[in-house]
Design a protein around this nucleic acid. Structure first.
Lengths: 189, 189
DNA sequence: GTCTATATTTTGATAGAC
DNA sequence: GTCTATCAAAATATAGAC
């Protein structure tokens, strides 16, 4: 899992193509053309097409699990933990917009590491849900079905990659602040 | 745009497959096998693979635009209009969960009707944004960047199809009510 | 309406020269 | 590290029999 510079170049260019058309609709020839080389040459750097997808998804999934594990241990209110989770999503989605598309839409095409990915995802959602439930218990958060709250917030955060490129003018910390306001306190006056 | 029963059967079965693997990863043989016939037989009912996708996406997009056009004309508060939009999404996503996956993830594979789809989508988002902006003007809604509010709410609504099958126990109207509470008033106590 | 057979193109991947 | 040449498999789609 420590790619050479050339391999990383392939992964980066492939990410951009996967974002636009999805993993299955992008061919090795598409990736090669975008790199300015022939498809056969790609195999000097990567084992196969699957390896590209696996790297994109697993490295992102690990970033998320590491991020939330750190946040959950902090001595903080639950609301502040949620704000940090929101900032985590904004940060990762800003730094790797293209990869986020594969993480969201193409994880089902993983083979070798599909089970590992699913474990990471379940762990992430469980930690997230635990933080919400603690917030309810401590009277910081409304006593609504916590799955609905989890689903609502996480759906928005997972879609950030679609929206961030359209809003290049807005800086990350302002976006995270505004998003926290909307997601935590709503839009109703 | 008025499919025979057999054609509708193909579209329905294809929707389920597209939901699981995406349009590009599903072959005509996959669809045929799920129907219990051979791939060649499909072509007696449909022109090509693209036509299946086009029907799924365009009929859903038209349902949404018709729904929101009706809501916007009503003599109602903006908050109530938003509640109706939320109920619209819950309703459509409940009735056609599988189709919603294609609408969200495979619209870029449209050919003939891609421009038409994009027009419908822009119109939908514009109407949605206008309702939010009116709410701000009338002091019903907080004066935050309306694009952030639009993005946040719409991301959640667009993801409903992923979540609804996991929550079969919850009825549509309760879900719409809870979701309105969370999306409009937030989770913070 | 479904079948078999088949044409044509595209795809992931390898072998071996430079 | 990239190329040309090529393979084998898989894909969309058509023709024509039943």
């Amino acid at each position: 899992m420590n790619p050479t510079p050339r391999k990383l170049e392939i992964i980066t260019i492939a990410s951009a193509l996967f974002k636009d058309k999805g993993f299955s609709a992008v061919t090795m020839r598409d990736i090669a053309k975008a790199m300015g080389i022939k498809a056969a040459s790609l195999y000097n750097h990567i084992k196969n097409k699957e390896e590209i997808l696996t790297f994109i998804i697993i490295s992102l999934a690990e970033e998320f699990i590491n991020g939330i594990d750190e946040i959950k241990e902090e001595n903080n209110t639950c609301i502040d933990k949620l704000k940090k989770i929101i900032a985590l999503h904004v940060d990762i989605a800003t730094r790797n917009t293209n990869g986020m598309a594969s993480l969201n839409n193409d994880w089902m095409h993983l083979k070798d590491q599909l089970d590992y990915y699913l474990t990471l995802r379940v762990n992430y959602e469980d930690t997230f849900r635990t933080i919400i439930n603690e917030g309810i218990k401590k009277n910081e958060i409304k006593s609504i079905n916590s799955d609905i709250m989890l689903f609502s917030i996480l759906s928005t955060l997972r879609s950030l990659y679609i929206w961030i490129p359209q809003k290049e003018d807005m800086n990350s910390s302002l976006l995270a602040t505004n998003l926290s306001e909307v997601l935590l306190k709503g839009i109703n006056k």
